[in-house]
Amino acid sequence: MTRKRRRMWIVLLCGLGLGTAAALTLTAFEDSIVFFHSPSDLAEKQVPPGRNIRIGGLVEAGSVSRATDGDRMQTAFRVTDGAASLRVTYRGILPDLFREGQGVVAEGALAPDGSFRASTVLARHDETYMPPEVADALKRAGHWQPGEPPPPAREWNTLQPASAGADTRRATN
């Protein structure tokens, strides 16, 4: 075995050891690395009221209610991960992207009544990008129910809506 070859094996073995150590560390700290917990996580973990945490999921369709409380806006909505859902209340200005069916991450604490009182709400968007015309065409054709995640990318990522001219209205906000 030449010295070069020996050096190569030493470096590779060090890499293997380092990788294993990193993987074990990250696995051990998984709970603090996740940026938010899903409503199912929360139900499972029995988080005490008052502890500051982040929860995330999709804003349940039809669950948003807004009220003005003095000069501040009060919003209540449900955050769902499909399996469980959680009622969230928030006073303040929401991000532009906030809407039903949209991903959100809320920071705050559980109230004694079991709802989540958020101090910050961030919008989370999915990894799909498409022109508004394509989104409209999908919705018109019934392939995409409003408030639901978009259909599989294969169905639309090369779709060219024929009547591009008839569809120039602004994107819905």
Binding site: E127, T128, Y129, M130, P152, A153, R154, W156, N157, T158
Partner: peptide, 9 residues
Amino acid sequence: GAPGIHVDI
């Protein structure tokens, strides 16, 4: 699977 980005983008 397919890229989640429309071909025009």
